[in-house]
Structures are given as structure tokens and as C-alpha cells.
Amino acid sequence: MRILFFGRGVISTQYAWAFEKAGHTVEFYVRKGRKETFGSNIELEMWDARRGKQLIKENWNVKLHEEMSPNYDLIIVSVNTEQLPKAAQLLSTAAGNTPVLIFNNVWQDLKSSISPLSMNNVVFGFPGGGGGIADNRLRGGFLKMLFLEKPREGTEHINNKVKELFESAHFKISWKKDMQNWLWNHFAMNAAIETEVLKLGSFPALMNHSDSFANLGKNMRGIIPVLKARGAKIDTISLLLTKIPPALLGTLFNKVIFAKGSLPRLFIEYNNSKAGFAVLEVVREAKKLGIPLPRLTVAIENNEQDKAIENSKS
């Protein structure tokens, strides 16, 4: 299969590497000027958990394009959430009839998030991995499991193509009947986590602060009314985050889910992305609905004050 990845980010690069190793042809579309900046290879230091826990260290050659053609079997989009509208706009004119996998976090309703792309040409999924890129060096990894929406009427052929692709590379799919609802809950959890990142300054700092995950539950309690007001069903993970006492929740995350040496913990420790967009989006929605979100709002305001102080110093 010939696959084009939209952007050469952490998720795109890791899955592209896995697909190439499985015998597929993978290429990347990047913005003008990025081809020269990125160069023809990238240094990989990532964990592959499809068959046990294997550390991959490789200087991997990649093929980048600054123009897009429709001559692919599948296009995979995994970008920062705020970049998705522009990506969809470009794909609507440049991708032709090539099917598209949106492998992304989404807070809008799915149809609006990819407009003017047609829902009949798109399926939605979510990766099971993370990490960061700095100085053309990727540190991160991926798990065996990923998430994919069950076929909608008219998308069966795309779902089958995506299913065959991931299974050919030995990934396991967790099928989601209501991908919209799953993504809303996941985005809300991201906002709850990013609230703590804004307060602490970085994702690695989140992992090393004793109160981070106790506060995560408190943040989620504030967001739940926003989810309900927009018609979301509260899923099991969101519910547990709000029902488990904060102290116990902190212990559960620090000692079990994000235990030292675990891959989920490493993925977050390697994450060097800028936090805050998920928080802003949820706060904007809360304001529209007239729902107070003091914990998230204070985190944003304090972060803006910190930026203003830094700018005045410089």
C-alpha cells in the first residue's frame, strides 16, 4: 500500500516507520521550507510494544514532499488539533478521491472538524503512542493497541483498508461504536491534564509532581458538566476520574498507570509539545454554555501572566 502522512510529527513518523517495516511505501507531506529544515533522515529512539518491549535506535531515511498529489492508497492525518481545519481545507482540494484517516484528537463535532472534506471519504481513529521531537531526534514509542471508529454507512471500504493496513503491521484495533463520544471524553481528559502542565511548566514536570494526578480528578469534575451540556455520554474512564478520591487517584496513576519505567510514563516525559490548546477550547465551550470552570480558567490566566512577565524581561 502507498501511504502519505500529512506532516512529519511524532505519531506520523512512528507509524510510518512501522508500516514501512511491514512492506508498505510511506511518504510525508510537509509545509514549504520544511523539507530542507527536516532533511532526508530522522534519528529514532523509540519503544515498540507490539511484541514485547523493544527499543528501536535507528537513523531512518524518509521521503518528504512539499506538494501533494492524489496518487496514494491512503492519506493519514495526525496533527496538532488546532492545525486540523487547515489540513482538511488543503486535503479537500489536493487529495482527490484518496481516502483519509483522521488519526487525531477532536473537540468539534466530527463533520465540522473536517469541513469541507466529505464524511464519506474519511474515517476517524486515535493512536496509542506519544513522545516528542527535538533537534531532529524522536524519542517516544507506541503500543500494540490503537482506536478506530466502527464503519459508518458508506465508509466500510475505507475501514477495511485501514484495518488491513494496521493488522499487516501487527497492531490491534479497539473498535469504537461512537467515536464522537469517545473523542469528546478523551479531549476533556487531555484538557484536565494540560491544566496541570500549564501550572507546572512542562509535561515531564507533570510526572514528577506529587499532586498532579490528584488534581487531574478535580479538573475532570469541573469539565463533566460541559460534556453533559453538549450531549456527551460520560465514559468509564471519565467517570472513574471523578469518582475515585483524589489522594487514591494520585496513587493509582503514580504507582500503576504511570509507574516509573512504564511506556505511558515515558511517552509523556518525552512530550515537548506546547500545552494549553485543549484547555482553551474547553473553557471557550464552557463560557458559551454558562458553566464556570475556575480551575482551568485560573491555569490559563496565570500562564498568560507568566508569558507577559517573560516578554517584559526580554
Rank of each mutant, 00 (worst) to 15 (best):
118 S>Q: 08
293 L>E: 03
264 P>H: 02
161 K>M: 14
245 P>F: 08
213 F>I: 02
311 N>E: 15
101 L>H: 02
232 A>W: 14
246 P>Q: 09
12 S>H: 02
216 L>M: 05
225 P>H: 03
96 G>W: 14
270 Y>D: 01
78 S>Q: 10
174 S>G: 01
206 L>A: 07
38 F>Q: 04
51 R>L: 14
8 R>H: 15
261 G>M: 04
47 W>D: 05
284 R>I: 13
293 L>I: 08
115 S>P: 06
8 R>F: 00
157 H>L: 04
136 N>I: 02
97 N>P: 10
136 N>V: 03
205 A>R: 08
177 K>D: 13
299 A>M: 04
188 A>D: 10
151 P>D: 11
197 V>N: 03
178 D>P: 00
8 R>Q: 09
70 P>S: 02
249 L>R: 02
44 L>P: 02
54 Q>G: 01
117 L>S: 00
54 Q>E: 14
199 K>C: 09
63 K>C: 10
89 Q>A: 06
66 E>S: 04
2 R>S: 12
303 N>F: 07
40 S>V: 06
3 I>F: 13
238 S>C: 10
164 E>F: 06
106 V>L: 01
213 F>D: 04
280 L>R: 12
83 Q>S: 10
292 P>G: 06
249 L>M: 05
131 G>E: 06
228 K>M: 09
32 K>H: 15
148 L>K: 14
218 K>V: 01
60 W>E: 01
224 I>V: 15
20 E>Y: 12
222 G>Y: 12
254 N>M: 08
106 V>F: 07
301 E>T: 12
94 A>V: 07
310 E>F: 14
45 E>D: 07
230 R>G: 08
64 L>M: 09
49 A>L: 09
23 G>R: 09
296 L>N: 12
308 A>H: 14
139 R>Q: 08
8 R>L: 02
93 T>N: 11
24 H>D: 11
117 L>A: 04
122 V>R: 01
151 P>M: 05
141 G>K: 03
37 T>Y: 15
250 G>R: 11
245 P>L: 11
137 R>H: 08
48 D>W: 12
267 F>S: 02
220 M>I: 07
191 A>Q: 15
302 N>F: 13
169 A>K: 12
150 K>W: 12
